[in-house]
Simulated scan of single mutants.
Amino acid sequence: MPVGITILLAFQLIGEIIAYALQGVVPGPVIGMTLIFLTLSLLKGRLPGFEAATMTTSRVLLANLGVLFVPAGVGIIQHLDLLARRGPALLAVILVSTLATLIVTVFTFLATKRLMGMREHD
């Protein structure tokens, strides 16, 4: 498992370096995941040790992913009084921002559709 973690972290590091070079256009972890996906896809069966190490470690990490959310849950429970005081304001902000996001998304889609010369019923 240490080999698998090392491989995963190496790909994340490579992704972070590329993201830094691209000035943050795409997040480093996304680039790293894409690179490891391409590597595993292109070299399927050629590097069995590499494949086994990354797959085993990935399965263990995914099986225990819930543990990573415990600190956030504890933080929420510790600040329930703050949530009770500011809850209505937080709810209003979440609802308004969600609605604004949906409206902007629709108008962006319609503008893109017009720019591409697509008709209403294509």
Rank of each mutant, 00 (worst) to 15 (best):
G75L: 15
V30S: 06
L35C: 02
L115H: 09
R86M: 13
Q78I: 05
L22Q: 02
A63Y: 08
M33K: 03
K113H: 10
A100F: 12
H79E: 07
F50D: 02
G15C: 05
A89S: 10
V25I: 12
T98G: 15
L42Q: 02
G45A: 02
V67M: 10
T6C: 06
K113C: 01
L62K: 10
Q12T: 12
I17C: 00
R114I: 05
I18K: 00
L68R: 00
D81S: 08
K113P: 00
T56V: 11
F11M: 14
Y20T: 09
I7S: 00
F69K: 06
F109V: 12
L61K: 03
P29F: 01
V70C: 07
L80H: 01
T108W: 01
Q23R: 15
G73F: 13
L38A: 11
Q12P: 00
H121S: 13
N64F: 14
I76T: 08
S58E: 03
V60F: 11
I103Q: 05
T112H: 10
I14W: 01
T108A: 12
L102V: 11
I36Q: 01
L65R: 05
V106S: 02
V104G: 04
T98C: 13
E51S: 10
A100L: 15
M118G: 00
A100V: 14
T112N: 11
R114V: 06
V70I: 15
L43A: 06
I31C: 06
T112D: 09
F50A: 06
V93Q: 08
I77V: 14
